[in-house]
């Protein structure tokens, strides 16, 4: 074994070379970036899809089983990413407790459904009436065995005919807005990327609204 030849191969790149390469990489990245943006949006769409699907499921369950189904949105600080603070991060639907019986409790029908990390429902009455109306607030989750969530929840109920218990029927009264937590500068400022789910209080019909891209 000879020693490696000591020529100028290990001198690395010159400053000029590195600069040129960097510039080229940046230039090409700029070309690719628009397509890459699409992929960053996936988590948000997945989060909205989860909520949309489970609200529809809860409504169908209420009709099929002919009994009211309560939908809860849990508000808590994520135990893993603790810097996030309290936000709406999960939902669940349950058989509603018997209103005439004080001791009865809601029975879980679904698991607790967690939104993708970094995806939350905005906690501001301007953007999410469905999780901020005072009359919808519940107390500590009482049936919470799957994960240690401590915090409050807001809930509304799908009645057995597919309508909801939401009483206000002014146009566009009931909706929630899904955003990326990282985009949030304050709890009242709406980020530029968001998706809003609107629900009709009588028919339970859901509608998805979002600003056009670009």
């Amino acid at each position: 074994m000879k020693l490696l030849p000591k020529r100028n191969q290990d001198r690395g790149f010159s400053l000029a070379e590195v600069l040129i390469v960097t510039v080229i990489i940046l230039g090409l990245s700029a070309l690719v970036a628009p397509s890459a943006k699409v992929i960053g949006n996936v988590d948000m769409q997945r989060g909205v899809g989860l909520i949309h699907r489970n609200l529809s499921l809860a409504r169908q369950t209420a009709i099929r089983e002919n009994r009211p189904i309560e939908v809860r949105f849990y508000y808590y600080a994520d135990p893993i990413f603790t810097d996030g603070g309290k936000q709406f991060r999960s939902l669940q639907y349950l058989y509603e407790a018997d209103p005439t019986d004080r001791d009865s409790a809601a029975i879980a029908k679904s698991k607790i459904i967690h939104l993708p990390a970094n995806i939350i429902v905005m906690n501001d009455p301007q953007y999410s009436t469905l999780v901020t109306a005072p009359e919808l607030q519940g107390t500590q989750p009482d049936d919470n065995k799957s994960k240690s969530i401590t915090g409050t929840y807001y809930s509304f109920t799908f009645m057995s005919d597919g309508s909801t218990n939401l009483q206000d029927d002014t146009p566009g009264a009931w909706f929630l807005t899904v955003v990326e937590e990282a985009d949030l500068t304050s709890s009242e400022t709406l980020p530029s990327h968001f998706v809003t789910l609107q629900i009709d209080p009588f028919s339970g019909a859901l509608r998805r609204l979002q600003p056009e891209a670009g």
């Binding site: 301007q126 146009p171 566009g172 909706f175 530029s192 809003t196 609107q198 609204l209 600003p211 056009e212």
Partner: peptide, 13 residues
């Protein structure tokens, strides 16, 4: 008029 109030006349909507 059927949109959530914050969306009416908003840019991109």
């Amino acid at each position: 008029k059927f949109l959530p109030p914050f969306m009416r006349g908003r840019e991109g909507i």
